[in-house]
């Protein structure tokens, strides 16, 4: 199999895709034959990220913080520790930091160097989070990036961008939207979108579009 990726492939997306597929299969066969991995264990990893680990975990944490002031304080003090007390949500590793949006300050999370992201809270990151436009612009022109998401913040709101350059991970605690008074934690979790926990979205008192 050829290992160069000549430009002619770019005109044939389908053939390039199948070449990549073959190459991935070949690598998996080699790793299996060498006794490094059991393919069934790889199946289990893929399945976990497709079915168990996703933004719902983070949404439940946010909903809890919106309804329980002492949990919210604990979350802001030490997010890893606070979430560990909610055994039913998700197990979470160390170094998670929750940052709170307020009327004065909006938080946004990026990884300019690669794709660091709170997997346990939000699942695997979306393509845009890992792609060049977001990684390049978030630290210089966050209002322009927010406009790409259809969001305009007041001109005097401070925007704080957290570049995840180490193993600390950040979860944005969005503001609870008006019109949700008296809602249960479960109802609130339904409106907490993935993007609102990255800082590129705002929750509204409407059912969320899947994202």
């Amino acid at each position: 199999m050829a290992h160069d990726h000549d430009h002619h492939h770019h005109d044939h997306d389908h053939s390039e895709l199948s070449e990549t597929e073959l190459r991935v299969r070949a690598l998996e066969t080699v790793l299996t034959e060498k006794g490094y991995v059991d393919p069934a264990a790889l199946d289990a990893i893929v399945e976990a990220y497709q079915t168990k680990i996703g933004p719902r975990n983070g949404a439940r944490v946010v909903a809890k913080a919106w309804t329980d002031p002492s949990f919210k304080q604990a979350l802001l003090d030490d997010a890893s520790k606070a979430i560990a007390t909610l055994g039913h949500v998700s197990r979470v590793g160390d170094h998670l930091i929750a940052v709170e949006n307020t009327p004065q300050r909006h938080n946004m999370v990026v990884c300019t160097l690669c794709s660091c992201y709170p997997w346990e809270m939000l699942g695997l990151p979306p393509v845009w989070y890992k792609a060049s436009p977001y990684r390049s612009r978030a630290v210089k022109d966050p209002r322009g990036v927010l406009a790409d998401f259809g969001i305009a913040l007041p001109k005097d709101t401070e925007i704080r961008v957290w570049d995840s350059t180490a193993e600390t991970r950040f979860l944005v605690l969005p503001m609870r939207p008006a019109g949700t008074e008296g809602w249960s934690e479960e109802q609130l979790a339904e409106i907490v979108t993935r993007d609102s926990m990255i800082g590129t979205g705002l929750p509204t008192a409407e059912p969320k579009a899947a994202s």
Binding site: T112, P133, S136, R137, V139
Partner: peptide, 17 residues
């Protein structure tokens, strides 16, 4: 190391990704 570079264009979120 892309922070601050220009020219990559708009961020394009994919609905129901």
């Amino acid at each position: 190391d892309m922070g601050g570079m220009d020219g990559f264009g708009k961020v394009e979120p994919e609905p129901n990704e």
